[in-house]
Amino acid sequence: MDPFEIEFIGENRIVSIIPNFSHDKIFLICGEFGPFRAGLPMNVPLWLAVMLKQKQKCRMVPPDWMDIEALETIKEEEKISRFFTKMPHEHYMIEAKLILGVAAEDIPRAAEIKTIIKDIWDIRMSKLRTSMDALMKSGGSYGRLDHLTMMEINSVKPLLPQAMDELHRIKMMTRQTSSSTLNSSTFSQSGSSQNK
C-alpha cells in the first residue's frame, strides 16, 4: 500500500477539537458527532478536524500523548529496550504529522515535540533495519512484529516480504535439486507467479 493510503486509514482516528462555532449534531456514515458548541472541546475524526482547522473553524486539542515528558519517557524506553515498545497508538506518526502540520500553533512546544517524535521514529526504524538483517541472515521465513505500527510496517514493504519470497524460492530450488524426485509442478508454479 502507498503511504498516503496508510495516512487515509489513520485519518479515521478520533481526536479532540474546540470549535469556534455552534451547530447541531451531524450524522455521518461513520458515526454521530456533535453537538458543536463554540469553545467546548468535542471529538471528531482526524480528517474532519483537519478540514475544520483549514477552514479556521476550530482549534486542535493536543492528544494526551503529545506531551514532552511522556514522549521523553517513551524515547528512553525505546532506547533501552531490545524490542519495540508499545507506541501511544497505531497511527501516532500520522496523527503527529497532520496535527503538527496544520495546527502547530495550537500545540505547546510544537517544535520540540516534532523533534522527539522524529527521534523515536528514527530509533525504531534503525531497530527495524537491524532486526530485518538478523531475520534474513538466520534464513527465517517467519517473524513476530508486535507493537510495530502500520506506517512502520509499510515502510519495509516491499523489501522485506520480497526478500523472504526470494529466500523461499532459493530454498525450494535447493530442495528440488537435492531430492531425487523432482516435483516440477510446484516449481513452475512458484517460478511463473507474480508478486503482488
Binding site: S141, M164, D165, H168, S192, S193
Partner: peptide
C-alpha cells in the same frame, strides 16, 4: 498465471 501463495 497463478498468484504466489508462498509470498510473505
Amino acid at each position: 498465471i497463478y498468484p504466489n501463495y508462498q509470498s510473505h
